[in-house]
Design a protein around this nucleic acid. Structure first.
Lengths: 254, 254
DNA sequence: ACCTGAACACCGTTCAAGT
DNA sequence: ACCTGAACACCGTTCAAGT
């Protein structure tokens, strides 16, 4: 009803709703510029390389000037996580299952291209313009399925979670276990070898058997693209079954 | 073959394999004590409250003494993430689906009890004794299903990812959007209200419709226990279908 | 061999002062 | 109104010195 409710300042800026300032010098920056600079640093040096001072000097300003545009470093990270998302693929007339697969894969690829997203994502519900656009498009693709809105939202968050988890695994596997989560694994050989070294077969019978059977000795490693499709199909099968249940009960119109 | 390969020092300590020191004063601490102190702080004040100095003073030692037991703060966080896991439920003779549901729910509850786990989990493959025990028990529960080891591992990581994602969502919903990811949402009312305020129905048609339809006006909120079961069943249905496929092809023995 | 204390380099954030 | 520069409180980590 009330159309002009005051939003939190950070949201105002993320949605480009800053009220034009009356007098004084014009601002030299905006949130988008600052965010883009921070993303460049994170892509090049990882999230640890992102400091307020570093971002500031990249946009040619004193560190403290950033606080005109950003409430805190946390704010900046939130903005980065939204801005790094490209536009979602368009559903067109695609069958829901094809689109959902495409949509999930695109999210996975995004994270693989910007691994620092894994450290930034606090799993907070999306509030930025790009992330919400992604959500909108999946809802649209599920329009003809007979699922209700709540179920659609649940499907979306389940798929997003899967994309994140799988990307994290693939990322970890690609690191060769040298730089692992700070666990001090410099030069450690292979995941499977480490497990074989460390596991007591009496206390870890099933896992030991799997390790000695060679589960972790795959060609490309154990988190390759086939693994991604495996889990994805598994979930989409579940969704499909749910849709079939809904449809057979005759809930078509709404 | 070579039984005494030198593991990274942090792993040695996590697995209690520290070689007994020859001479000099006996150590006053060990990794478990330090880790427990850090966990207590994180539970009470959040992860931001965990500093090397704080942990040190809690165990009665100078900050710099911790570096006898821990290579870095990252090491300590890794140890915390493993140590916080309780023992997994025992499969007994339970049907695989019941156990998988129990196992996933227990992981979700663990994260809800220690929300800082979400910030610490870099999604690195597990290497600690507790996390690997969890993995072992799920593999054991899936023993009779005809899935191969790789598939079982994939099921495990998919379910773990779901537990994390869902816990994060439930945690976020429980926060009432006051302290959200630093997005500056102090005093912001309701998630649905915020979306209604911010979304342009032309650019976000499907999502706008859902919002105005009241998806985010659930009784308990939109990330309650029913939602958890919804997604879980969805995935277990997928697993069940896969198992059915495997079984019907006659791959029983191995 | 373990622990301390001083020291280093760095960080996010504040605030008063300039324009 | 925007930006600067000095300053503050706090970090993780090192290193030489004690016992």
């Amino acid at each position: 009803m009330a159309p002009e409710r005051p939003l939190p300042p950070m949201l105002e800026r993320m949605w480009g709703r800053e009220r034009a300032p009356r007098r004084g010098p014009r601002p030299r920056l905006d949130l988008a510029t600052i965010t883009a600079a921070a993303i460049e640093i994170a892509d090049a040096e990882g999230l640890a390389g992102v400091s307020m001072g570093g971002v500031a000097s990249r946009v040619g300003v004193a560190a403290t000037a950033l606080y005109r545009y950003v409430g805190s470093k946390e704010d900046l990270l939130t903005s980065m996580a939204d801005a790094v998302a490209l536009d979602p693929p368009e559903p067109g007339g695609m069958p829901w299952r094809d689109y959902a697969a495409l949509w999930t894969r695109a999210q996975r690829d995004l994270v693989l291209a910007h691994p620092w997203v894994l450290e930034v994502t606090k799993y907070a519900p999306p509030l930025g313009p790009r992330r919400l656009l992604w959500l909108d498009r999946l809802l649209a693709a599920l329009a003809g399925t007979g699922l209700d809105d709540g179920e659609k939202i649940n499907v979306a968050s389940t798929l997003t979670g899967y994309a994140l988890t799988d990307a994290a695994l693939a990322h970890a596997a690609g690191m060769g276990f040298e730089e692992h989560a700070g666990a001090g694994l410099e030069g450690a050989a292979d995941y499977g070898e480490l497990l074989a070294e460390v596991l007591d077969p009496e206390r870890y019978p099933a896992l030991s058997a799997a390790v000695h059977g060679g589960v972790f000795r795959g060609a490309e490693g154990w988190a390759d693209d086939a693994d991604f499709r495996f889990g994805l199909d598994l979930m989409l099968d579940g969704v499909e079954q749910l849709i079939a249940r809904r449809t057979s009960k005759g809930r078509f119109g709404g």
